[in-house]
C-alpha cells in the first residue's frame, strides 16, 4: 500500500481523498472491503483520530480516472459511518508523508549519509554499530528521492506512513 517508486508528479490518475468517519470499530474494514469489492486500487491509506475523538480521518490515495473517482466518492459516502469525503485534487493543499529508513551505515559511509539526511532535512533517530534509522518527512517525491540516494548504502528496511493531506488557508475538511 505504498506509493513505491511512483512520484506524485507522475500520478496524474491518482487522487488524494480524505474521509471523515465515525470512530467506530469496523469502519476501516468497511472502507477496505468496499475498495476490494468494487475493484478500486488503493495506493495508500492512513487512519487516525482527529481533533474530535469521536471522528477519525482517513486519507486515501487511489488510482483511477474521474469517473472512477466519482464512484469511489459516492460509494464511500453511502457508508453510514462516513461523514464527508473531500478530494484534494481540487484544492490547494499540503500533502505530507513520513518515512523511517534503516540503512547500512559503515563508519566510512557515515558522514556522507549524514550529509544526505541533512540536505533532506531528515533526522537520524537511532544509531547502531552498523545502521542508522533515518526519519524524513515531506512530499512523496522527496521521500522517493532520498530513498534512491540511500539505496547504494543498502536499505535494510523502510516504512512509510502514506500520505496525509490538509487544505491550505481557512478551509477545513
Amino acid at each position: 500500500m505504498t506509493i513505491g517508486n511512483l512520484m506524485m508528479t507522475q500520478l496524474e490518475h491518482h487522487h488524494v481523498l480524505t474521509a471523515l468517519v465515525e470512530n467506530h470499530p469496523g469502519v476501516l474494514a468497511r472502507m477496505a472491503g468496499l475498495f476490494a469489492r468494487r475493484g478500486y486500487n488503493i495506493e495508500s491509506l492512513t487512519v487516525s483520530v482527529t481533533e474530535d475523538p469521536a471522528i477519525s480521518r482517513m486519507t486515501i490515495v487511489v488510482a483511477g480516472d474521474s469517473m472512477v473517482l466519482e464512484q469511489i466518492t459516492k460509494q464511500l459516502n453511502k457508508l453510514i459511518e462516513v461523514i464527508r469525503v473531500v478530494d484534494y485534487a481540487e484544492l490547494p493543499s499540503v500533502l505530507r508523508e513520513l518515512a523511517l529508513i534503516k540503512v547500512n551505515a559503515e563508519p566510512r559511509d557515515r558522514s556522507e549519509i549524514m550529509q544526505i539526511v541533512e540536505i533532506f532535512r531528515g533526522r537520524i533517530i537511532d544509531m547502531g554499530e552498523r545502521t542508522f534509522i533515518i526519519e524524513v518527512t515531506g512530499g512523496s517525491e522527496k521521500l522517493d528521492k532520498i530513498r534512491e540516494l540511500l539505496n547504494p548504502y543498502g536499505i535494510k528496511e523502510m516504512v512509510r506512513t502514506g500520505i496525509i493531506a490538509m487544505a491550505r488557508g481557512p478551509r477545513t475538511a
Binding site: G26, A29, R30, G33, L34, R37, I80
Partner: peptide, 14 residues
C-alpha cells in the same frame, strides 16, 4: 456474521 454481511447489508451492528 457482521464481517460476512458487510458487503451485503446497507449497514450492520454487533
Amino acid at each position: 456474521i457482521t464481517g460476512i454481511t458487510m458487503p451485503i447489508t446497507k449497514h450492520n451492528y454487533l
